[in-house]
Amino acid sequence: MSRATSLVSTEWVQENISNKSFVFVEVDEDTTLYEKGHIEGAITFHWREDLQDGLIRDLISKEKFEALLSKNGISNGSTVVLYGGNNNWFATYAFWYFKIYGHADVRLIDGGRKLWELKGLPLVTEVPTPTATRYVAKERDNSIRAFRDQVIASIGIKNIVDVRSPAEFSGELAAPAHLPQEGGQIKGHIPSAKNIPWSKAANEDGTFRSNEELSDLYKAAGVDFAKETIAYCRIGERSAFSWFVLHELLDLQNVTNYDGSWTEYGSLVGVPVAVGA
């Protein structure tokens, strides 16, 4: 994958908005945004109701993913174009999700909902009524997902990238500053992790920095591209953003998203924890 195959511009969207082979999907943290207005023809996934199992803490099953896509008119041959608020956090999480279940062609709108709004581009409130399909997902591809035991075994060995804010990394805050301060049982970070906040990969308008800037960012922070890399945050969405940067834009293999992230790690009994910058 690469920037050319995974990322599209707002101009590209304007040119292709009527193409029926593209399915535009908005995924937001603030799920009321879609109702306020969305890109014409776009459907929405609710990050909690649609993309979390609900009973156990996990991704939805293959069968539920198939049902979700089928009822929303997405077929195996569809080009899925994702975007969302919050600098595409949850849209990149959905992108990672589509890759987990092996969807062939999925792309992300550079700058997401924010750039679309900052440019004053049109949003509509009409909700499309998709024609149902019979989507068939692949078995989960866990080569892009990290689990807690893999993370513990990787301390001091692989690149571990903590993409939260410096205050969360150091243990000062338990959650991002726009959320109530809840998180893992304790504060801090995984030992040997490098703190490279997701935000450093984005421009103020929500677009990604250039590949050269991104490569320099990770190298300067001590990430060795020859090694495997695990990205984590608090609940796995911001790290999906950084996973997208490393795996899709910089085209690095062996990059995983630890979606258990700090809410899991920071609640485990007996695992090593570091605090401070």
């Binding site: 945004l33 919050n86 804010s165 959650a175 991002p176 500053a177 726009h178 109530p180 301060q181 906040p197």
Partner: peptide, 19 residues
């Protein structure tokens, strides 16, 4: 350094929980 970002609501309001 960037710490957080929120969209405004229908009343143009926003809120952060900071330190």
């Amino acid at each position: 350094e960037f710490t957080a970002e929120v969209p405004t609501n229908l009343e143009g309001q926003f809120r952060f929980f900071a330190a």
